[in-house]
Write a protein that binds this DNA or RNA. Structure first.
Lengths: 382, 382
DNA sequence: CGGGCTTGTGAATCGAATC
DNA sequence: CGATTCGATTCACAAGCCC
């Protein structure tokens, strides 16, 4: 009994759900906006069922009229110092409430994004760390065209901060490294992203007025989703607003769920998402790491005659040399092993990529083994 | 009676001290490094006595095992004891302790800067808000040449965050708006600053090894101090390290006080500050009033050390001469202004392109400023 | 022609990293 | 088993030039 239960728990952990993943997914309101307070709305979702949460919570710490305590009671506007502390505490309480539900709903290997400004992001970040979320990056959205500081009293507030976190230190989160590198002109994507604010055609308007005061640009969500979700993943946005998350999810072939209290926002969002056409499957396909490419064992190159047993290989500087054996291992005077393990041993390094470490003479030129592998792939794959 | 008391309180508040300001200043260890723990050290300072605090506390990095580059070389990480904390709670306790002393020592109209990364900055920011500090901006130091993410597992961590805060919402903090605008090409200075990391000549070394693992670039402190202090102000750095704050303070004619536990850092700092020569009074004087607004990017050359404040410039024929000031304006006997406006005024011309009008001696040759700008661009742009 | 100096090119180094 | 690095800076060395 105990054993069975443990097994179930382990399996559930691995698959990210108490029930089978397909079974849980069936229960999700995919492509729908749940109306009402986001904490209540998230309570209706099963545990460990979504792959990513994107949250754009209220930034406002002055509270005014647009923030309620988790119990629904209204927070009065406050001016004196004593009450200011009270308002921070109230904001923290609100933050802990929605983050707790987000955490419950996330799969163990899911991740969460939260965007904010200096008014709220420090509190949000500290609470996330306290709850066990593991910060992976803080990302700076550098606004190409920020609002100037009209009074000249401070620096132009030209950025917002996003926190990207996994469920814990050991979680196996999704990061499409190769897609980001491709998107960034073959350089690693950095933690600062230069993107324009949402304006022009993209900005939703009704009767000349903007429908939502803080509509986020689709480019921002595009990068977030492309980087940290896979096609078919479920993305939840607890502060859905006018549905930027939903529109981008649909375009990129991700599933989405939104929570939103205001009916005007819900209507605008549904209308907008309807118009967001899914991209072709081929357009969504991202550059995969070479790891995902068809594997070629070193031995295959020998079997197929691309490299002959007895050939000498060496490192780039010619400090180490070794001979190729018929079984695909390498041998030198001192030792032998796979292309990787021998390279590591000779250098005294913990690891080594033999494909780039070892070089071979081919048509008069000295090339890394990986070049031969690429030629083999080109000749056999397409 | 009541009236008199109110007057005293008001005066004290305005001057930032219970005692007269000159009286308190007399008690300060200006230009000295207090040895020992920073909380203890700050306790020796009088209440409401310093104008600005710049703090670079331990980041609580929580590094795992060793990290190697793809080529197998080892990354020299921050493994010092001073960055080790048992838990977030311990770190928070430490943070509250030093922030409380910093707050006590600051004048009511003083301000505080704290720098950190995602490991600690959220906690620091939230605690600052809880203590009553009023965040004015969060500033992003965007590194021109950050360390890449060697394993391809996250976004390149390419920035650090600074928090700038006053003592409270109503405080009359110092912000040299005009100096910042002049420094930034006649555009408002934004909340994201692109600056190189500290390396090359500036990086303090002993026997080939870096003296301090996290030495900050002087350009960063230069901008902080020029923006939020006045000449003669007292700047306190509770985590003095190798004294970047002291060196820049001396150059800019500010007074400084440091706290540092490690004697090796203290010695290196004192030696370094000795070599940091104060700039001329006229070079430090910043633009205080709005003037004509021609487009210039001159300030960047000063901030990055390509042109030193105090340097003389002249027109091609040597008829006019002027001196470079710290904020990127020029001053001569008769007048001052941007490189464009002063050139125009001296010639009695309606306008003037300061980049081609003003010349500077560089490596024995007299060159137009534009040549320096071109060199800077070539050196910094890909 | 050679010594000394300048200039240009390419290799090597390394940075607050939860890798 | 084998995937994974960017840019500023310095240094070594070659090429070119002057005297």
């Amino acid at each position: 009994m105990l054993k069975e239960r443990t097994a179930t728990t382990t399996r559930a952990k691995a698959r990210g759900a108490g029930k089978g993943e397909a079974e849980v997914r069936h229960l999700l309101p995919l492509g729908q906006i749940i109306s009402g307070d986001c904490v209540e709305a998230m309570r209706s979702l099963p545990t460990a069922s979504v792959d990513m949460v994107f949250a754009d919570p209220p930034y406002n710490l002055q509270l005014g009229g647009d923030l309620n305590r988790p119990d629904g009671s209204h927070v009065d506007a406050v001016t004196d110092d004593w009450d200011k502390f009270d308002s921070f505490a109230t904001y923290d309480q609100f933050t802990r409430a929605w983050l707790a539900e987000a955490r419950r709903v996330l799969k163990p290997n899911g991740s969460i994004w939260v965007i904010g400004s200096y008014h709220n992001i420090f509190r949000v970040g500290a609470i996330m760390q306290d709850m066990g979320f593991w910060v992976l990056n803080d990302i700076i959205w550098r606004k190409a065209n920020p609002m100037p500081n009209f009074k000249g009293t401070r620096f132009t507030n030209a950025h917002e901060t996003l926190i990207w976190a996994s469920m814990g230190e050991k979680a196996k989160y999704t990061f499409n490294y190769r897609a980001m590198k491709t998107l960034n002109d073959e350089l690693q994507m950095r933690s600062d992203w230069v993107l324009p604010i949402c304006s022009g055609q993209e900005r939703l308007k009704k009767g000349g007025a903007k429908v939502h005061p803080t509509q986020k640009p689709e480019a921002l969500l595009y990068r977030v989703m492309l980087a940290t979700t896979n096609k078919g993943d479920v993305v939840l946005d607890p502060f859905f607003g006018t549905g930027t998350t939903g529109a981008v999810a649909r375009r990129l072939g991700r599933e989405w769920i939104g929570c939103e209290r205001e009916s005007a926002y819900r209507e605008a969002a549904l209308e907008r998402i309807e118009l967001a056409l899914p991209l072709d499957e081929s357009a969504i396909t991202t550059m995969q790491s070479p790891k995902a490419a068809p594997k070629v064992a070193f031995g295959t190159l020998i079997e197929t005659g691309w490299i002959k047993p007895g050939t000498m290989v060496s490192d780039k500087k010619g400090r180490f040399a070794a001979q190729v054996r018929a079984d695909g291992s390498l041998a030198c005077a001192a030792d032998s092993g796979s292309i990787h393990s021998l390279g590591a041993k000779l250098q005294g390094a913990p690891s080594c990529n033999g494909w780039s470490f070892w070089h071979i003479e081919h048509e008069g030129q000295v090339k890394p083994l990986d070049d031969i592998r690429q030629m083999y792939l080109l000749a056999t794959e397409p």
